[in-house]
């Protein structure tokens, strides 16, 4: 499976991408919502997008709305990964089409649990 990690902080992109790669994902990164849209429009195919909320150029909520408006991208699972933790913000993101919401700070176990809920944790190889 392939994941798109969208965050203006490259530190956070590295942390999230590292956690996803440990779970068996391949990853691609974008520094804001517009860069991420450009990647998708150029034909990049991903199963999951992990999206920060506050970013320059295009924020995460706008990105979610734009992805959900395009039927070609309906199979992409969208997970917000953000410091925005007020109930109202979570409701807004889910109403816009995000499937899950992970609040920073998070542990790698928390990422795994959220992906498990979404059915996106790759099955372990039998020993």
């Amino acid at each position: 499976m392939r994941a798109l990690v969208i965050d203006d902080s490259r530190t956070m992109r590295r942390i999230v991408a590292g956690a996803l790669e440990d779970l068996g994902f391949s990853t691609v990164q974008a520094g804001d919502g517009q860069q991420a849209l450009d990647l998708l429009e150029s034909g990049e195919e991903v199963d999951l997008a992990c999206i920060d909320w506050n970013m320059p150029v295009m924020d995460g909520l706008t990105f979610v709305t734009r992805v959900r408006a395009n039927p070609a991208w309906r199979n992409i699972t969208l997970m917000m990964v953000t410091t925005e933790s007020e109930h109202g913000q979570i409701v807004r993101a889910l109403a816009a089409g995000a499937h899950e919401y992970l609040i920073k700070p998070f542990t790698t176990d928390a990422i795994r649990d959220k992906l498990d809920l979404l059915g996106l944790v790759p099955a372990e190889e039998p020993v």
């Binding site: 902080s9 506050n54 410091t83 933790s85 913000q89 920073k104």
Partner: peptide
């Protein structure tokens, strides 16, 4: 660049969670 980005992100995560304590919703700067 890593120093500025990582140290800034620590402040960002602290700030985002402090914002959630406020009784009215605001917006977080970069």
């Amino acid at each position: 660049e890593d120093l500025v980005d990582a140290f800034g992100e620590v402040a960002n995560v602290v700030g985002g969670n402090v914002k959630a304590l406020l009784p009215s919703q605001g917006t977080l700067g970069l």
